[in-house]
Design a protein around this nucleic acid. Structure first.
Length: 563
RNA sequence: GACUUGGUAGCUCAGCUGGAUAGAGCAUCCGCCUUCUAAGCGGACGGUCGUGAGUUCGAAUCUCACCCAAGUCACCA
């Protein structure tokens, strides 16, 4: 960054006032390959002013420029290519990494502002699927990234713990369930009752009547209904927590839909007071025509409230409770319209802070090209995927490194890491078709590849034995190490971009690039040879490990020191 | 039909605010473990960047139109 400015300052002195420093900075680009230089200035922009061919301009600029602070400056076609001083740059970057450690790349963009993040949000009595995985790991990673630039993320698991399905569930349980069964295997049993209910209700509509009655009881605070609901919720939650533990994700709040039950009347009243509610086809709506949106349906014909009413109450509650600077919703793209409506209604109510609410959408996971759905039986259970991945990692360890200490834990780190990384490495919006062999792959652009690179770095440091790696005197001029060093320098910029775009894949891609550069480096250059740059090389290896570990940590992936 | 996403190598995807011969991984084929873990490294093969116009010195990138796929479109969440 300072370096780019250096380049711009050197240029601004010799362009005869035709371009400002800012304009030059905007034009400066980074060549595709470092063989072409570290920064490049295309001379096209000066062609008109100088009335000369860009190639000539580039040549002239190189002759006039003060080259003292660069390794070299060269004209290649219409470009002026700048090569940084490798020794000084490597010393600078390595010092920054080693002195800051895991805090390298941190900044104070957020000023500790609160950012509630609505994420994961599974439904009680249903298993956590691959779809929830996306919301969970994307939300978790965004939280980590925002914390890194000093926001205060608040991870909210907006549980689906209310609704007519509980009437069905209670009915089913009373008919076919048993306490012992549920205790033994809560999610699967509850799901089984639920599925059976749907099947039998097709032939026996009486069941639906019964279910509605039970839900009514629940709403009215009937003791037995509440007791069952509380129990189902607790059982489900403890099953969910098992999976969250595997993923290494913690939440700051589990306030779900039920929590907002007594907060919706206020919303409806507010809407009425502001004359926003209109009657339409027997239901109460908010007209959003001026936003080019469909009307928001606030109250059904039977007076019951809907999803959006609950989300309005939740949004208002979050503003009051956290006074957020941003409020995020990590929810699938298929709900894009809903969030537009939600923000529009809040805006209509006079809440300008609705501009600080952002829907963070993500693409669909399909199987065999088809949408997953609980009802059709196309479910991929996250727990099974994580277990399969861990088992495969275990096999891999037996194969490659049978004497590895702590093999169980490493297998978990690698297996689960592979699954999480696979989900985060591509842009959120991409859809992907679930193929187990793809998700738990350990080679190529994968989590384990990054973990392996870090483990190798750690291994080298171990082998170095009793040496003291210092923050200073790390002037590496070796061209073989150059790409790695430059990538280390990019890390702070990468984090800011990931935060701005709410895009963990930026960090994941970076981790792959750094791993690749480092693997290439140590595969061809021996680190542990006794010469005057040995300590500097070790400092670089240590820096790589610090940044890889931190990158993985931002993604929510562990970085074992040995694997 | 309207709106939202997306359409880059056989497959999965990168490509930052338009710029130098369009890059990875997987798959296929070949080479490298007597030297820091081969979960690695190197090489080969492979692309009219959906199509057609336009803006520009210059377009995968910006504008418009069209084609294709997925998703959404008031009483589920």
């Amino acid at each position: 960054m300072n370096y780019k400015q250096q380049v711009a300052q050197a240029l601004v002195a010799i362009v005869d006032g035709n371009l400002t420093e800012e304009e030059i900075i905007a034009k400066i680009e980074i060549p595709k390959s470092s063989e072409m230089g570290d920064y490049a200035f295309p001379a096209f922009a000066l062609a008109k002013a100088f009335r000369k061919a860009p190639q000539m301009i580039a040549k002239d600029l190189v002759e006039q420029i003060d080259q003292s602070q660069f390794e070299s400056v060269a004209a290649v076609g219409p470009y002026v290519n700048f090569f940084l001083n490798k020794s000084a740059f490597s010393q600078d970057i390595i010092e920054q990494v080693l002195s800051n450690g895991s805090k390298y790349g941190a900044s104070d963009v957020g000023h500790e502002g609160n950012v509630p993040i609505d994420m994961s949000s599974p439904n009680i009595a249903k298993p956590i699927s691959m779809g929830h995985l996306r919301s969970t790991v994307i939300g978790n990673s965004i939280a980590n990234i925002l914390a890194k630039i000093n926001y205060n993320p608040i991870k909210i698991n907006h549980l689906g713990d209310w609704g007519t399905q509980f009437g069905k569930l209670i009915t089913a349980y009373k008919l076919w369930g048993s306490e012992a069964e549920v205790k033994a295997d809560p999610i699967n049993k509850l799901l089984e009752y639920y599925v059976r209910f749907h099947k039998e209700a097709e032939e026996n509509p009486e069941l639906d009547v019964e279910a509605r009655a039970w839900f009514k009881k629940l709403e009215d605070g009937d003791e037995e209904a509440i007791e069952l609901w509380t129990w189902f919720r607790a059982e489900s939650l403890s099953a969910f927590n098992k999976i969250y533990d595997m993923l290494g994700v913690q939440f700051d709040s589990f306030k779900g839909e039920a929590f907002y039950n007594d907060k919706m009347d206020e919303v409806v009243t507010m809407l009425k007071d502001k004359n926003l509610l209109k009657e339409s086809q027997g239901a109460e709506i908010v007209d959003l025509e001026k936003y080019d949106l469909n009307p928001a349906l606030i109250q059904k014909t039977d007076g019951a409230t809907l999803y959006i009413t609950r989300d309005l109450a939740a949004a208002i509650y979050r503003k009051r409770t956290y006074n957020f600077v941003q409020s995020l919703y990590v929810v699938g793209n298929e709900q894009a319209n809903h969030f537009k409506q939600l923000k529009a209604v809040l805006k209509e109510m006079g809440n300008d802070w609705s501009d600080d609410m952002h829907h963070i959408p993500f693409g669909l996971i399909t199987q065999g090209g088809k949408k997953l759905s609980t009802r059709s039986g196309r479910v991929i259970l996250l727990e099974e995927v994580l277990n399969d991945a861990t088992d495969l990692a275990k096999k891999q360890i037996q194969d490659k490194n049978p004497d590895l200490p702590n093999a169980e834990q490493v297998a978990k780190d690698v297996g689960v890491g592979a699954v999480i990384f696979h989900d985060l490495k591509n842009e959120r919006m991409n859809n992907f078709d679930f193929v187990l062999e793809e998700v738990v792959r350990f080679e190529g652009e994968t989590g384990p590849y990054v973990q392996y690179s870090n483990a190798r770095a750690q291994s080298i440091i171990r082998k170095a034995g009793d040496v003291t790696i210092s923050e200073s005197n790390n002037e590496l001029s070796d061209p073989a190490a150059w790409d790695t060093i430059k990538l280390l320098g990019d890390f702070p910029k990468i984090i800011k971009r990931a935060a701005k775009e709410y895009e963990p894949s930026v960090v994941a891609k970076y981790a792959i690039h750094l791993s690749r550069a480092f693997n290439k480096y140590y595969a061809n250059s021996k680190i542990l040879v006794d010469d005057d740059q040995k300590l500097a090389r070790l400092a670089l290896v240590q820096s790589v490990s610090v940044v890889l570990t931190e990158s993985l940590s931002l993604l929510g992936v562990n970085a074992p020191k040995e694997m």
